[in-house]
């Protein structure tokens, strides 16, 4: 399953968005639970099955939801589930317990709903570039439709009730994925990270906490979910993101003025390796793509589209490569297949 989906990037990735030379995507997540049923982590099999049943019946009843597709995760093989994680349609946490759980995928893969992750429902919407309102509007459409069909766990003091007290209230986690190679190169990144933290937001490197930052990608998100309206939470992140994109632009200008040749050499070398290498690990691809993305944004590289960069970024991931080529591979075989794919895309 999903072989066709793997052949192309998610529909939303090919659109243009605000600040897209720095901001890759905006993501909204709403946590919701169904009244009267224990949360997934403390629910027994029967209750978990009931949650899936409720969602499926809403899915069947609603014309709006009917535009998407619904899969039970236990009916998908391991490769398909990993593929969904790489595509950010389900979370890695979801893989820990696949029974009586599922995922809804909306048109263009812009909205996905995890059923029985940490909360009964986690509605996610994603857009290209910095498009907070658009992403929120998308998530809200699904939230309102489902909220009419089932009764959410809600308390007039505490708002939407969630398994973890850090999500209660709006249940809203909004985040932007942001590319900051300029600030990393000028070594201003630590200062910027401190600045973001001081403004009450969380920053982390792409794919996991504590690990090295891959491809100069960072995620900025809200820390608190209670006591502020959805609009205020989104406004905070948008404001901070615009400050950071300004900082990144200033860093890129400094690089252009002070180290123009070195930067363009770094970018063209990265491009050369991607274009001609015969063996590539996914980490190497991510870091090289970061340089090429910077080259595109700074106008050093032209006649290459940002869409191709995004496509390579997605397809380089192990489960994507497996689906793309339609066969299982060892890690070594995959590194060769990855280099083949990258050369093919850059032809």
């Amino acid at each position: 399953m999903f072989e066709n989906m793997a052949k192309k990037p998610a529909g939303w990735l090919s659109e243009d968005g605000d600040e897209s030379s720095v901001v890759l995507s905006t993501r909204i997540r709403l946590a919701r639970n169904i009244n009267g049923l224990n949360f997934p982590t403390s629910a027994n099999k029967e209750t978990r099955a009931k949650v899936v049943e409720y969602f499926k019946s809403a899915f069947e009843k609603s014309e709006f939801l009917g535009q998407g597709r619904f899969h039970l995760t236990e009916e998908l093989d391991e490769a398909s589930n990993s593929f969904l994680v790489e595509r950010h349609l389900i979370s890695p946490t979801m893989l820990e317990r696949l029974d009586d759980a599922g995922v809804f995928i909306g048109p263009n893969e812009q909205v996905s709903i995890m059923v029985n992750e940490e909360d009964h429902l986690r509605i996610q919407a994603i857009t290209t570039g910095l498009e907070m309102d658009k992403a929120m509007e998308l998530a809200s459409q699904y939230d309102n439709e489902i909220g009419r069909l089932m009764e959410y766990d809600y308390d007039s003091d505490f708002g939407f009730l969630t398994a973890c007290p850090t999500n209660v209230g709006t249940g809203l986690r909004a985040s932007v994925l942001i590319h900051l190679p300029g600030l990393v190169l000028t070594r201003d990144i630590d200062m910027v990270i401190q600045k973001i933290s001081k403004m009450g937001l969380a920053v982390r490197g792409f794919y996991g906490e504590g690990t090295d930052v891959l491809g100069n990608l960072f995620q900025i998100s809200n820390q608190t979910t209670l006591g502020k309206s959805e609009e205020d939470i989104l406004e905070d992140i948008e404001r901070v993101t615009r400050v950071i994109t300004g900082d990144e632009a200033a860093a890129r200008n400094r690089l252009r003025e002070e180290a123009s040749e070195q930067i363009s050499d770094k970018i063209w070398r990265a491009f050369g390796i991607l274009k001609y290498a015969r063996v590539l690990s996914s980490e190497e691809v991510m870091n090289l793509l970061s340089a090429v993305r910077l080259g595109l944004a700074m106008g050093i590289i032209d006649n290459l589209s940002i869409k191709v960069i995004n496509e390579i970024l997605l397809l380089s991931q192990p489960a994507h490569l497996t689906k793309y080529l339609g066969q299982d591979m060892t890690t070594d075989e995959r590194d060769i297949a990855r280099a083949d794919m990258v050369r093919d895309k850059l032809k």
Binding site: D143, N144, G147, R148, E151, Y152, Y154, D155, S156, D157, F158, G159, F160, P165, T166, V168, G169, T170, L172, T224, T225, L226, G227, K228, S229, E230
Partner: peptide, 18 residues
Amino acid sequence: LLRKIHGSSLHRGKLPPM
């Protein structure tokens, strides 16, 4: 506890559709 985590203990966002 919620005041310590979020700086507030009262929801000020949207109401559920119902």
